[in-house]
Design a protein around this nucleic acid. Sequence first.
RNA 1: GGCUCCAUCGUCUAUCGGUUAGGACACGACCCUUUCAAGGUUGAGAGACGGGUUCGACUCCCGUUGGAGCUACCA
Length: 485
Amino acid sequence: MSSDAVRPRVRFAPSPTGFLHVGGARTALFNWLYARKYHGEFLLRVEDTDRARSTDESTRAIFEGLEWLGLSWDEAVVYQGANVARHYADAHRMLETGAAYRDFTPPAEIDRLRAEAEARGDAFKFDRTMAELSDADTQAKLARGESYAIRFRVPEGVTEWDDLVHERIAFPNKDIEDFIILRSDGTPVYNLAVVSDDIDMRITLVMRGDDHISNTPKQILLYRALGATVPQFAHVPMILGADGKKLSKRHGATAVGDYQHLGLLPGAMLNFLSLLGWSTGDDIEVMTMPQLIEKFDTRGLQKKAAIFDTKKLEWMNGQHLALIPLADLAPIVAPALVKAGYTTRAELESRRDWFHGLLDLLRVRSRVIDDIVRQAAPYFQDHVEYDPEAVNKQWRDAKSAAEILSATRERLSALPVWEPVAMEEALRKLADELGISGGKIFQPLRVALVGLTVSPGIFEVLQYIGRQRSLARLDAAVSKLSTEY
RNA sequence: GGCUCCAUCGUCUAUCGGUUAGGACACGACCCUUUCAAGGUUGAGAGACGGGUUCGACUCCCGUUGGAGCUACCA
């Protein structure tokens, strides 16, 4: 980067009117990636000017979501509500230069005209001549204390820009009505607040959802009227639900927090999100954050909206589950196991190697953290819950199952060391002697140990459950089966 | 309605005028195997439609159709 190049400054500007949405998270991610890649700053601005809908709870949820994902911001959070004095001043500055004018029309009157136009099937567009007043009239209304909103005087011409995603986008100014920038109560309207703050924060690139495309010409006009440099824009495609409609609550989990609680790994979530509306150009899809930073390029940004595919998200999580170092995975799973009541933090710490080994066994069979927790029960608890289907399938002939398990118990208990190779040798020998296949022993044994037909390799299960507990479980199985014939 | 954006397998995407249109998820089959996963191999599966431009269009242009967003003194 040359010395005179401006360090890029980007921002994520959510309004705190709900949880952190996956679409918002992805916008934040792209901005964050851009800042990291080009050694710039990623800023966070809370757009809380809608006091009726903004809540502290929501602000907290947004912070928590970003923190969970590891999308750290570089400077103090900017609260838009703290800047209304500047917004007000900017609006009045435009009033003085003639870039804006006072509109004394009562809101109810506008509503009425709009309703009438719609009833006729016409599109209502605010007509400047309705509000254009002579200086004398203006002074008279002011003297009478009539309230007014400030409208931006949209000039003639065409407003266009080179979007990093869409290339050139142009809006004829005649299609843009003179929009309000300051309400009659003196508070700023969105487009003014955004521009005023982005100028103040020295934002060089505005990267946001393409639902903002039609706001952009208005904002560009404001930058110019305020004498500021217009930043670059990149409008990224939206994320849609499976039905192709805007992602909303009825599509299921749309909050980042939902996925955190579902047992997703932040790295997997980020990786998945990065591939919605962006691609590297190569065939590698599973990537760590450093790789994403290295590969990120706005040229890979897509124009087309993307549909949120939960199946692929789960697959992605499985991939990350397999790749994450056990030392990083353990602290994520541990609280879930403790919460499930299987164990205590102290126990896990004292059996660290055993715990890590167990995780390694279970994670390959899991897509989310909950899958690991569910499978982990037999390794922690004394009792085991028998799945009726497993029992029905593998212990159908109770007498023969009891005999096999009893012989199995005998051989295992005779082993000098509790170790997989020795176990396998002993049980294969037993199978040989009984003239049956190994599976005829392993499957009933599996049910006795974990209560299911599904588990890691049976010898590893024995090893991880431990000698004492394993033998006790075999005893329990034999006695349960014995009562049935 | 108006304005703007968009259009390759069911989904996410590669292709930057010449390819048997490639990969991933999901789905099917097979291999591996004590089960389940994971992994490997493999199958099916796409350029919305119509015109141009060109020796040659998924790719460039126009139109049609379809979808999306915006259209507030919301953000």
